[in-house]
Simulated scan of single mutants.
Amino acid sequence: MIRQAMTFYGDVQGVGFRYTAYHIANSLGLTGYVHNEWDGSVTAQVQGEREEIDLFLAQIGRGRYINIERIEQKNIPLDEDERTFRIE
C-alpha cells in the first residue's frame, strides 16, 4: 500500500478531469482526493496498491477532452483512517 501526491498539468480543468478521477479511483478501490488549483493544475492524493495507482494513471488521460502534459508525483505517508475518494 502506498500514497502518492500528484500534480497534473495541461488541459485538466473544465474538462471533467475531477469527475473522471473520482470514477476511476472508485472503480479501482483507491482512496484520496482530487482538487483544482488556482494556476490551472489539478492536485490529487491517491492511496492504494501500486498496480491500481498505475492503472489510475493509465486511464485518467483517456478522457475525451483531457490532455495531460506533465505529472509530478511523490510518495507521501499513508492516511490509515481514509476510506473514500472525494472531489474537493
Results as ranks from 00 to 15, higher is better:
Thr43Cys: 09
Arg64His: 12
Tyr33His: 01
Tyr9Glu: 11
Gln45Ala: 00
Ile71His: 06
Glu51Ser: 07
Lys74Ala: 03
Tyr22His: 04
Arg18Gln: 13
Tyr19Gln: 05
Gly63Thr: 10
Gly29Lys: 02
Ala44Pro: 05
Met1Pro: 14
Tyr33Cys: 00
Ile53Glu: 03
Val46Ser: 02
Arg83Ile: 11
Val46Ala: 06
Ile68Arg: 14
Pro77Tyr: 05
Ile60Cys: 07
Ala44Gly: 08
Arg70Cys: 03
Leu57Cys: 11
Tyr22Leu: 13
Tyr9Phe: 15
Asp11Leu: 15
Trp38Val: 14
Tyr65Glu: 10
Arg86Phe: 05
Met6Cys: 07
Glu37Gln: 14
Ile71Lys: 06
Asp11Pro: 10
Ser41Val: 10
Ala58Phe: 04
Ile24Leu: 10
Thr43Phe: 06
Glu80Ile: 15
Met1Gln: 03
Thr43Asn: 09
Ala44Cys: 10
Asp39Thr: 05
His35Trp: 03
Asp11Gly: 14
Gly14Ile: 02
Glu80Gln: 09
Ala58Asn: 08
Gln45His: 08
Gln47Gly: 00
Gly61Trp: 14
Thr20Ile: 09
Gln45Val: 03
Ala21Ser: 09
Ile76Arg: 07
Gly16Glu: 14
Val34His: 01
Lys74Tyr: 03
Leu78Cys: 06
Phe56Gly: 06
Gly48Ala: 01
Phe8Ala: 03
Thr84His: 09
Ile68Asn: 11
Glu72Cys: 06
Gly14His: 04
Thr20His: 12
Ile68Asp: 02
Glu52Phe: 00
Ile66Gly: 01
Leu55Asn: 05
Glu72Met: 08
Ala25Gln: 02
Ala58Gln: 07
Val42Cys: 05
Asp39Glu: 06
Ser41Trp: 05
Glu52Leu: 02
Asp11Asn: 15
Ile71Tyr: 12
Glu49Thr: 09
Thr20Trp: 07
